[in-house]
Design a protein around this nucleic acid. Structure first.
Lengths: 192, 192
DNA sequence: ACTAGATTTGAACGATCGTTCAATATAATA
DNA sequence: TATTATATTGAACGATCGTTCAAATCTAGT
């Protein structure tokens, strides 16, 4: 009947995510995207509708990637709490060298955009709440495993951790001293 | 000899700062600026050189305003530490309703821009370090005044505070619950 | 092999971008 | 008051923006 698509949708979204992550929404032009994902305007618009539509999918891809990383690290690091700590270390320290940006793409989005792109802001906020919920679930697991005192409020700990990660990723962008940042992470996890 | 300028430079910069603060560097067009500061392109370029030049002055104005606020609050709040706490409360809680953006303009800038605007990124980073230094000076004063234990490392406290503010302002953009945020500020200052 | 239907292409659209500059207006000096 | 130096204006520039769509291309089913 018809022609089949030559593009791997997930691969396209992944490449778009990295470009958007690096340059931001307004800093990325459709022509930048055309080059990076090697598609012509017509194909991009047929597949994603608009610059905003593709960005939305990028935000969702970014979130799933982060949650997937956390789940993976929980399995490989030896315990829920160790996995969570590795996740934070990777986000704050290693992201500086191995990622398009040291900053979190979700907070970058919330920071950059206004109500002119209300949908994107909302998606980013929801994703951050979702991630915080996964932090909490992990902390509960750690509590069950005896890594955290029974009487600690895991909801509050998850919130503290979210705030701390946001602050640290921002701070690490300014004064990139891995030793100091590592100490601050250690101190944060010592409060658990 | 010549005509005198009809514009109040400080007033112009103040208005430009608020617009840039709200919409970001890429999100603000020169035509947006023309409307807000009521100047024609030629005058703007004669006075500030470029969009980037005006933004640079805006960053510096923003920083001086912040430092001025801190100095003022130290005098009016009753003590150095109380002034510092009021400064944080205003930045994190009240900024949401009384400012162009709940986020810090300096961190927004660092988050948004890349090395394509290296000068602006550098100015923002230097400003944040300058502010952190003023936090430290304030904490030393608080230590002398007996508000903080003698054996605390004020450099480290200032750094923690900076990280905490960055995290909280970001967090407050997502889940604007003033009670929770106030509690986190209280907890942070309880560690001093 | 042919056809039908989906995909891909890329030139082109109008809008807007940051910026320039010749023309005009104005105030301080002589 | 005439002169002169500076300030202001706003039309216009080339570049780039996000987006569209008719034409070309390709593949699965007949």
């Amino acid at each position: 009947m018809a022609k089949t698509s030559k593009y791997n949708r997930q691969d396209i979204i992944h490449k778009a995510t990295n470009l958007y992550w690096e340059k931001g929404f307004h800093g990325t032009s459709m022509r930048n995207l055309q080059d990076v994902i090697d598609m012509r305007p017509g194909s991009i618009y047929a597949a994603f509708g608009s610059k905003e539509g593709l960005f939305k999918e990028a935000l969702q891809h970014y979130t799933q990637q982060a949650l997937s990383n956390l789940a993976q690290l929980k399995l490989t690091a030896g315990s829920p709490l160790k996995g969570l700590k590795r996740f934070v270390e990777m986000a704050v320290i290693e992201s500086k060298t191995c990622s398009p940006s040291g900053m979190c793409m979700l907070t970058k989005t919330i920071s950059e955009l206004t109500q002119d792109n209300a949908t994107l802001v909302l998606v980013a906020k929801k994703s951050l709440n979702e991630i915080e919920q996964h932090f909490k679930n992990t902390l509960v697991e750690a509590q069950v495993a005896g890594e955290i005192h029974k009487n600690k409020d895991t909801t509050q700990l998850a919130r503290n951790l979210q705030v701390h990660i946001m602050g640290l990723r921002c701070y690490a962008s300014i004064n990139n001293n891995p030793v100091i940042v590592q100490q601050m992470i250690d101190n944060q996890f010592a409060t658990f």
